[in-house]
Computed example of a mutant assay.
Amino acid sequence: MQPEPPQDALAAALSTGAVARHLGVSPTTLRSWERRYAIGPARREDGRHRRWTPQDIARLELMCRLTAHGVPPAEAARAARGTAPAGSARPPQGGPGGQGALPLGEVRPECRGLARAAVRLDASAVQELLETALADHGLVTAWEEVIAPTLHAVGRKWASAGERYVEVEHLLSWYVSGAMHRIRPAPGAPRTPPVLLACVPGEQHSLPIEALAAALGERGLPVRMFGAALPAEALRDAVRRTGPRAVVLWSQSRATADRALARSVAGIEWGLRGARGHSALLLAGPGWGAGTPDPRTGRLFGLRSGLDVIVELAAGGAAAGGIPASGAAPAGPAAYGS
C-alpha cells in the first residue's frame, strides 16, 4: 500500500486534464495507463474525480521519458512505480526528453506539454493539445503563447543538433497547419476587398501567415491565401486581379527577403482607368530586418498587433500612404513570428 500523501500535496493536486496538458499526452492516455499499468493518482475526490499530486506527476514524467526512448510501457510503468530491478529501464543520456529536451525557458505548461508530445512523435496527443489550446485561449493567444514558442524551440534544437529533430519539426508543423485550416471563417460583409497573403519567392515557411489567415477569417475579413514561395510575377498578377485592401508578404530569412519585389508590389495600381487604386503593402517576418524599402510600406510585428493593423485598414483607418499609423513602428523587439 502506498503511503498517504501529505495534506499540502493533496491541496496542490491537479485534474487529469491539467496533467495531460503538462505532460503532452491525452487524458485518454492517462486513463489507459492507470487501467493497464496501475500508474494512477493516489487519491480521488469523492471517489470519482482523479486528482494528481506532485508525486503522481513525477512518476508520470518518468514514464513519459522512458517511453520516449522506446522502453515498453509496462516496463516503464514498473520503473516509474519503483518496482523495477535497480538499473533497469534507465533512459539514455541526451536525446528527446532528457538532456536533449527542447529549450523552452519560461512558458505556459501547455507549451511544455505540446513540446513533449512533439518530441515523442505522438501525433494524436499533438492534435488534441493543439485543439485544446485553441479552444481554451483563442487563436491569437494560443499562437503567441503556446504554438509559436514550441515551433521556435524545435527550430533552435534542429539548428544545433544537425539532422536530428527534423522529423519533430515536420510533424508539429503538419498538425499546426491542420489546426489552422480547421478554424472556420465568420461571414463577412459582401464586396469587401480581400487581404492577400503570400510568402516571397523561395520562402517555404508559411505557418505564421496561415495563422494570420485563420485569425482574419475569424473576424469575417476575406482572405486570398497563396502560401509558400509564390513566384514574383504570379504575385503581381494576383494583386492586379484581386485589388486587395492589403498585401502581406512573409519572409523568414534575409536570404529570401526581396526589397526590389516589395517596392514593385507597393507601386502596383489596379482597377479601371480613372479610378485606379493601390494596396497597402505590409511586410511580415524576421527576414525583412529593420526599416521598409518604400514609404508606402508598413511592417507587422506580432500576430495580435498585426491583426489590429489589418482590421484598421479594412475599416478605412489609414495614415498617409495607406498604412495605419499603428503599423508604422514595431510593437516590440522581435518581428512577427521570428
Rank of each mutant, 00 (worst) to 15 (best):
A9K: 03
L10Q: 05
A11L: 13
A12I: 02
A12H: 03
A13W: 03
A13P: 04
L14Q: 15
L14H: 10
A18S: 04
V19G: 00
R21F: 08
H22C: 13
G24V: 07
P27E: 09
L30S: 07
S32D: 14
W33Q: 03
W33G: 09
E34F: 01
E34W: 10
I39M: 06
I39F: 09
P41C: 04
P41G: 01
A42E: 15
R43T: 13
R44P: 01
R44C: 01
D46C: 05
G47H: 06
R48Q: 08
W52L: 02
T53N: 00
T53G: 00
P54F: 07
A58F: 03
A58R: 03
E61S: 13
E61Q: 14
E61D: 14
E61K: 13
L62A: 08
C64M: 13
L66N: 06
L66F: 10
L66D: 05
T67W: 05
A68R: 15
V71G: 08
P72W: 01
P72S: 02
R81M: 12
G82Y: 08
T83K: 13
A86H: 15
G87R: 04
P91W: 04
P91T: 01
G94R: 02
P96A: 00
P96G: 03
Q99N: 02
Q99Y: 03
G100C: 01
L102D: 02
L102C: 09
P103L: 05
L104I: 11
G105T: 07
G105R: 05
V107L: 12
P109Y: 09
P109F: 05
P109R: 12
C111S: 15
C111F: 11
R112F: 12
L114K: 12
A115N: 10
A118M: 09
